[in-house]
């Protein structure tokens, strides 16, 4: 089971965090800080896996963003790379050639996407089409209930 997933930039700024294991806030911050520092210090040619405490950390860099997942000892680290890749593909389809800015400004949508791909740290849907369909339907629901016109200042803006 995936314990948590972090997205952060090359400058070490956290862009997204998804925790499937309960930790106190302080611990989360500490873990995040340590992992970001460790991963950024690694050279590009090194392998994508780290042993970190009793977890395996799998990370991969896409452009300026690092995607980093912590999994348990008997999980398949190569498969985790595929999960990360799948997530990136989905974001790419959704935003249309996604970039870091998309994820910064639409972080909630990136979370929604993650929640349709994974649940409780396990993969819930292996078809890209189904994930995107579910997201589109929910976006539509949201759009329909946001009254438009007159002021155009609704929703999250």
């Amino acid at each position: 089971m995936m314990q948590f997933m972090l997205l952060f930039s090359r400058q070490g700024k956290l862009r997204l965090q998804k925790w499937y294991q309960a930790y106190p806030d302080k611990t989360k911050k500490k873990i995040t800080r340590e992992l970001i520092a460790t991963i950024l210090a690694r050279k590009p040619k090194m392998c994508s896996f780290l042993e970190w405490k009793d977890l395996k950390v799998v990370y991969k860099r896409y452009a300026s963003l690092y995607f980093c997942c912590a999994i348990e000892q008997d999980d398949n680290e190569l498969l985790t790379l595929e999960v990360i890749h799948r997530y990136v593909e989905l974001l790419d389809k959704y935003f249309g050639s996604v970039c870091e800015l998309d994820i910064i400004f639409n972080f909630e949508k990136a979370y929604f996407m993650c929640d349709e791909l994974l649940l409780g740290g396990e993969i819930q849907e292996t078809s890209k089409k189904n994930v995107l369909k579910a997201i589109a339907a929910q976006d539509l629901l949201q759009e329909d209930e946001t009254p438009q016109g007159l002021f155009e200042d609704h929703g999250l803006g």
């Binding site: 909630e108 979370y111 929604f112 929910q138 629901l141 949201q142 209930e145 946001t146 929703g155 999250l156």
Partner: peptide
């Protein structure tokens, strides 16, 4: 639904 979506997030 919008409220719920953000609320749960």
């Amino acid at each position: 639904f919008t409220d719920k979506r953000i609320g749960y997030l």
